[in-house]
Design a protein around this nucleic acid. Structure first.
Length: 690
DNA sequence: CCTTCCACTTAGGAAAAAGGGC
DNA sequence: GCCCTTTTTCCTAAGTGGAAGG
């Protein structure tokens, strides 16, 4: 926490320097140095540079050298672009656009924005080799220098297969691609072929019906569609508390004004005279309607959505069909940052095809831009995983369309490739090398996390992320800095200036290594210990959670008790109480039924008796379930299981346990988790041992 | 060195869906 | 079927590591 704070402070200072400039410009959006934390954080990325853009005085915007607003050129704000153009080189380089060959090949020319010769030259110097990877590519006159990269045999293989397998793409894709059964590919090259349909553009704005109107100063005003659209963004949010905030209102109004026609600007001078209530009401009613739709209507919508998913939701990655994470472009709206964000309420503009860079393989079917449009550019960079990118206009940061976590390119835990490793390159905690750990300033809500990834005893992979003390973390960082991956982590320490503190820290760390190794085996031990065959599924699940908890406790994965904890606990207890009473009641009835049956046996009385018996039994089972739930929840009050489940523990342990004890995997992993761990679910058998 | 940028990951919050009692 | 709660999913803001730039 502190480390981050320090950094924040530094940036904050900088920003404040800048802000004096800002206030000259527009005098109102001066970032406060007393912002709450979330606040200052979100300001961080834009540190000083874009803050100036807050106001309405666009011309004064101090544009980042990297031409963050690059893509806006066709869609407006020419003032910016004049300045930007002169600085556009570096960003282009970074975006690795291979202009010449593209523009002739595809129909996605750069148009008026051909690069200067200087830019091309610069590009030639670039270290990152982007487009030179596919063998077909000759048209490029730039001969970029070779970038270090290890080419694994599997990559080569993939390329080969791709050549002859194009026709079968579709069928192949239908079965889940078991990429984990293939060899490991290189780190720099992320794919050898990538084809997709481009992003899905949100539907165009539909103007309001004539009977719905915006009022200014009590008078109905028909806004032109562009202005009206922005008005609806605000109108929809009318009952959110932040709509009432001054910052929000100011940001909104100045951005809104910019988009108005001259005429509208003349008329609409102050937000306080604007009346959006009718529009608001209209949208409330609309959403009400949507809620009250019949099943059939909802079904139609659902089908529509899945059709969309079919069409845009997948790509072909190395000729396998993979799910895309966010194939829909973010629709326009009003920006809502977290916390007291200084930019809240600003207009998030509609993304045009001209803002979007497409990334796919050279020889693939290039996605079609919407009719009458063209892409900002098309590139073929297989060192990155994204399919499309654009710059959002609030901070000027890039955004990407990427794959779903279930895909090959997203998985943090690699399937065990132990077999592929050269014979027995195993390490113990004393022989840890630099390449075995990664440092995270912040990870999973924890500070100073060390990520371990190495083959331990018996060539079993050890993968874990361990939070350490700040001092330890700092030292480690210092320490790793000038080392090659294959250098010994601990050995080098002595060669570097090593003080006493460091020594102590390291011994502490060593202890932690042991401890965490312990932790990851704990899950398995606990599972073995806690589970017996005669348990019901529910009891087994409780055991699983307990084992998981044991790990979490060991790793110190604490959480604050959920806000609603007491309340929901109470509810649960009431439920249990009720259930008990019901059982009482049912027992009584059962007794009566018994008696009745004894006194006057008949088919009817017998049936009644059976029914009552069943009722008691059912209720008792329900009670037991509830009680298990109660225990589970109570024990879980201050423990965060999700983190370790998702990020810390080898899923194969859990999968093996489920298989062994016939516990449905859904009880342990929800759908997202199942997708993420599909490889483990598939490849692990019940005898897996960590 | 320190700072900035890019690409990628993580996570908060809202909406949607599912569960469960009446 | 309706209403309420809980869980899951979706969306996208924001954090971060490493490389590039200065």
């Amino acid at each position: 926490m502190k480390l981050e704070k320090e950094k924040l402070d530094r940036r904050e200072k900088k920003k404040n320097k800048q802000s004096s400039k800002d206030s000259e410009l527009n005098g109102k959006h001066k970032p406060s140095s007393k912002m709450k934390q979330s606040d200052s954080r979100s300001g961080v990325s834009s540190a000083g540079k874009y803050e100036a853009g807050d106001g309405d005085t666009r011309e004064d915007v101090k544009v980042d050298p990297d031409e963050r607003n690059d893509g806006q050129q066709e869609s407006g704000s020419p003032e910016i672009n004049i300045k930007e153009k002169t600085r556009s080189k570096s960003s282009k380089e970074r975006h690795n656009h291979k202009e010449k060959s593209e523009s002739t090949r595809d129909s996605n020319q750069e148009g008026p924005r051909c690069e200067s010769e200087a830019a091309v030259k610069m590009k030639m110097k670039k270290k990152r080799v982007k487009d030179d990877k596919s063998p077909e590519k000759h048209s490029d006159k730039n001969q970029p220098s070779e970038r270090k990269r290890k080419k694994s045999s599997s990559e080569q293989k993939n390329k080969q297969i791709k050549k002859d397998g194009d026709q079968k793409k579709k069928e192949d894709g239908d079965d889940k691609w078991k990429w984990w059964e293939e060899g490991k590919s290189s780190d720099t090259q992320k794919w050898s072929s990538l084809e997709h349909k481009g992003p899905y553009f949100p539907p165009e704005y539909e103007p309001l019906p004539d009977n719905i109107c915006f009022y200014y100063d009590g008078q109905p005003v028909k806004l032109n569609p562009a202005t009206e659209e922005i008005a609806t963004f605000y109108a929809k949010m009318l009952d959110h508390e932040y709509t009432g905030k001054e910052v929000f209102q100011n940001n909104f109004f100045s951005d809104w004004k910019e988009e108005m026609t001259e005429e509208e600007q003349k008329l609409i001078k102050t937000l306080s005279k604007c009346d959006f209530s009718q529009i608001h009401k209209y949208f409330v009613e609309k959403s009400e309607e949507r809620k009250n739709m019949t099943k059939e209507e909802k079904q139609v919508l659902k089908e529509e959505a899945s059709r969309l998913m079919e069409e845009y939701g997948y790509c072909l990655l190395d000729r396998h069909r993979e799910k895309i994470g966010n194939f829909k472009l973010e629709p326009p709206g009003l920006f809502r940052g977290r916390g007291e964000h200084p930019k809240m309420g600003k207009l998030k503009k509609r993304i045009q095809p001209e803002d979007v860079t497409i990334n796919c393989s050279q020889d693939s079917k290039i996605p079609e831009p919407p009719a009458g449009h063209r892409w900002k550019r098309v590139q073929h960079d297989n060192t990155v995983t994204w399919l499309a990118s654009w710059l959002e206009n609030i901070h000027g940061r890039p955004k990407y369309i990427m794959l779903n976590p279930s895909s090959k390119l997203k998985l943090a835990l690699r399937a065990g490739n132990e077999k592929d490793e050269e014979s027995a390159d195993t390490v113990g905690c004393c022989s840890l090398r630099v390449e075995h750990i990664t440092l995270h300033r912040r990870l999973d809500g924890q500070e100073h996390v060390v990520e371990f990834d190495f083959l331990g005893k018996d060539s079993i992979r050890y993968y874990n992320k361990v939070p350490v003390e700040k001092q330890v973390f700092k030292n480690l960082k210092l320490f790793i800095k000038h080392k090659d991956p294959e250098d010994d982590l601990f050995d080098r320490i002595t060669t570097v200036k090593l003080n006493k503190t460091l020594n102590e820290s390291m011994s502490g760390l060593t202890a932690k290594v042991f401890r965490t190794f312990n932790a990851s085996t704990t899950l398995q031990d606990q599972l073995n210990k806690l589970t017996t065959e005669d348990m019901t599924v529910e009891e087994k699940i409780l055991s699983y959670n307990r084992a998981n908890r044991a790990v979490a406790i060991l790793c110190n994965h604490q959480r604050a008790a959920p806000k609603t904890f007491e309340k929901s606990m109470q509810l649960l207890q009431e439920k249990i109480q009720k259930k008990k009473e019901q059982i009482e009641e049912a027992r009584k009835e059962l007794k009566e039924a018994k008696k009745a049956h004894r006194d006057a046996p008949s088919d009817k009385s017998k049936k009644l008796l059976e029914k009552k018996e069943k009722a008691v039994q059912r209720l008792s089972e329900q009670l037991k379930k509830l009680q298990l739930q109660e225990t589970d929840r109570e024990e879980n009050k201050v423990i965060a299981l999700g983190t370790s489940k998702l990020n810390y523990l080898d899923p194969r342990i859990s999968v093996a346990w489920c298989k062994k004890h016939q516990v449905p995997i859904e009880k342990i992993y929800n759908k997202t988790q199942r997708d993420k761990f599909a490889w483990a679910i598939d490849m692990t058998d019940e005898n897996f041992q960590f």
